[in-house]
Design a protein around this nucleic acid. Sequence first.
DNA 1: CGTATTGTTGAGCGTAGTCAAAGTTAGTGG
DNA 2: CCACTAACTTTGACTACGCTCAACAATACG
Lengths: 241, 241
Amino acid sequence: MIDADALTPLFRRWDKRSALSDADRAAIAELPVTRRRFARNAYLVREGEPPRECGLLLRGMTCRQKVTARGARQILSFHIAGDFVDLQNCLLGEADHNVQAITDAEVAVIPTAAIADLTSRHPAVGRAMWLDTLIDASVLGEWVVNVGRRNARSRIAHLLCELSLRLQASGLTDGPSCELQLNQQDIADATGLTDVHTNRTLHSLRRDGLIDLSFRSLKVLDWQGLKDEGEFSQRYLHHAA
Amino acid sequence: MIDADALTPLFRRWDKRSALSDADRAAIAELPVTRRRFARNAYLVREGEPPRECGLLLRGMTCRQKVTARGARQILSFHIAGDFVDLQNCLLGEADHNVQAITDAEVAVIPTAAIADLTSRHPAVGRAMWLDTLIDASVLGEWVVNVGRRNARSRIAHLLCELSLRLQASGLTDGPSCELQLNQQDIADATGLTDVHTNRTLHSLRRDGLIDLSFRSLKVLDWQGLKDEGEFSQRYLHHAA
DNA sequence: CGTATTGTTGAGCGTAGTCAAAGTTAGTGG
DNA sequence: CCACTAACTTTGACTACGCTCAACAATACG
């Protein structure tokens, strides 16, 4: 059983695409869940594991990531409250990436069987979840472009635009000037940069008045400015934001 | 109506995951298709278009790509014979990337309505196509790692391993020592490098006996060596290869 | 045979990486 | 409340990987 207001961000996002019936919503709320807390940096899922359950993020932030043979971490995507964590792994037979908590996080853990049951009895929910995986893939494509073809300033600007917009769409912040709970190492690992260079680039963005920056806190000040800097177009989010 | 042997690579890949019934196979073969040829570099789909049809690649190679505001191209994935081109765009409402021919290519073009009809009457086919999109997403994740956290030699080695393995899995080549129809600009755009640096890196791989290289032809010689160089593990392909 | 495309090479540069040390802030326990 | 610690951020000096620009060579193709 999931709290009604814990589901608000999820429904708020989904309603932008197509509305669910009350029965669909109720079925989601009545999923058999176990609440679990994870500390900052804890692993929710490890690459290679067979996934037994899937999670709905209630509070905090998590990420999908991989670690290379040489020990470098690359973040593939961020989850915010209302996102399903690890749908991909759940649907394929074996986890091909790790899931890690970025902040202290609270997750409603759902057995895979319950998900299967839910989607078979409520096809609209299945479609919505499936659309989510397609959009995730689309976002991943944009990240390849970001990391492959943009310089440090643009990469970071682009990432901040994406997160800012997604937080807004889920109602987790009002207006584009949001505060993010990421440290500089996280930003570095999401953009394919080093922490040192990320630090210098963030300062350069602050000098230009695009962001506000203090210890473990980063605020988007000038969304339009960041958008220009990061060549940001929200088409790739497909109304997920 | 699609030639039986044009479907061999597709079925060969799908059979590695789960076998289709003869009825499923027949239904695919009987799809109403239009054969269409595309010249090297021609666009099959452009970003922003509403997708009306989806294609099955019969011959040649195509890619999904995006072009940044500054004019740089980033390739997101390659299609080989037997791959569905543009399932993603087809399922979402609007193309968020381009599809372009890498070599002269021949495509069986299928109206989206026929795909919808096929998957509703043959759920196993729908599941197989849906799995394909999940695996595509998984591959995209590995590409983010490749471009974000590996140096030029590893990036190129990794790409060559992936393509070599996929060609083998589709029966388009025998053994790991395959010949690829890519030019150096294509490799550069897939790995986030410049053509000049790609050229130098390819030569360095040739010096080490990992590949054979001549005009518009690139052969994988030492698959194991490339695998080590590129930290390649095929988990992320999820038995698509 | 001429032209377009693709590949090759060189020189110089710059963005981002590396390494190392010091400075901040939050959190912890005495 | 303060001392101590761990996590995170900042700064500096140096390095290097990969980029840019430019010219030239090789190959394919009409």
